[in-house]
């Protein structure tokens, strides 16, 4: 945990400095307002900076042996999953909601559960048809149709 906390405080400090610099660029005062738009973000940045310095000091003083937090295979597995979701988000607009959902559910069920492909496919068809029927048809929600039209 020790190392991770240290890295985290570095990342957060960088973020807070960025926030503080950006908020200084905002107008400090606007006619008729008690407080300009940049005031609160500036102090938020300052607060995060202060806390991350405390975190860094804490973790440097921490005597416990560091615990490994991230391992490569975990990150790889998560990355594949996340990539699938990103592709899904893109494909929803491009190819339509129904077909993308079908593919996503197929992929997820297969990956999480390692079932036979036809089982995954059926679940995919059911989930996507039910959600399209429920939301697009019944509730008239404008879910994207894309080029496939489903």
């Amino acid at each position: 945990m020790k190392k991770i906390n240290l890295y985290m405080s570095i990342v957060l400090s960088a973020l807070s400095v960025f926030v503080m610099v950006e908020s200084k660029k905002m107008p400090a005062e606007i006619a008729g307002l008690g407080m300009g738009p940049g005031v609160l973000p500036f102090w938020l940045g300052a607060g995060i900076l202060l806390l991350s310095i405390i975190l860094a000091v804490e973790s440097l003083l921490d005597k416990r042996s560091p615990k490994k937090v991230f391992n490569i295979s975990e990150i790889k597995n998560m990355g594949i999953m996340f990539l699938a979701l990103v592709l899904y988000a893109i494909s929803v607009d491009l190819f339509g909601f129904g077909i993308s959902t079908l593919l996503l559910v197929f992929f997820l069920v297969r990956r999480l559960g390692k079932y036979a492909w036809w089982k995954c496919g059926t679940i995919g068809v059911i989930v996507s048809s039910v959600s399209v029927y429920l939301f697009r048809v019944l509730l008239e929600m404008p879910l994207p149709t894309g080029i496939v039209g489903f």
Binding site: I99, W118, T122, V125
Partner: peptide, 23 residues
């Protein structure tokens, strides 16, 4: 179950194809 699943899949593909042609 496997048979039904295949049928559902096939039916689904068929409706999709007909749906696309209509536009």
């Amino acid at each position: 179950i496997k048979l039904i699943a295949m049928l559902v899949l096939a039916l689904f593909a068929a409706t999709m194809a007909s749906g696309c042609a209509g536009t």
